[in-house]
């Protein structure tokens, strides 16, 4: 159950967000021992950074498929939409 950083890195945004929400709830619940709450807080921060990185990485990149002679996609080229 205890949380390795690698475990967070492998999370999808949604999982990380849910985990973060859980952390916040538990912290707000107030029945976590103080020492543990510090670990929990650190984990929450890691989760938040992970989520933030995911959001920050969001950028528009529009491409279109360039089909090869066999009709299979051979690559992508920038799409200059309409």
């Amino acid at each position: 159950m205890q949380d390795q950083p690698t475990e967070i890195a492998g999370m999808t945004f949604e999982e990380a967000l849910r985990a973060l929400e859980d952390v916040v709830r538990r912290l707000e619940g107030g029945d976590v021992p103080l020492d543990e709450s510090i670990d929990l807080y650190e984990r929450g921060e890691d989760l938040r950074k992970h989520c933030q990185a995911r959001l920050d990485a969001a950028q528009a990149r529009i491409e279109k498929i360039v089909a090869g002679p066999d009709g299979k996609p051979a690559g992508a080229a920038p799409f200059d939409g309409a």
């Binding site: 969001a58 950028q59 528009a60 990149r61 529009i62 279109k64 992508a76 799409f79 939409g81 309409a82």
Partner: peptide
């Protein structure tokens, strides 16, 4: 279709909400 309102609408709304990597297959 690579032309027309449809792809524009989609790209526009995606950009508004959450800029994403989009691959268009015309």
């Amino acid at each position: 279709s690579p032309t027309g309102a449809v792809i524009r609408d989609i790209l526009h709304r995606l950009a508004d909400r959450f800029p994403s990597h989009v691959l268009v297959w015309p």
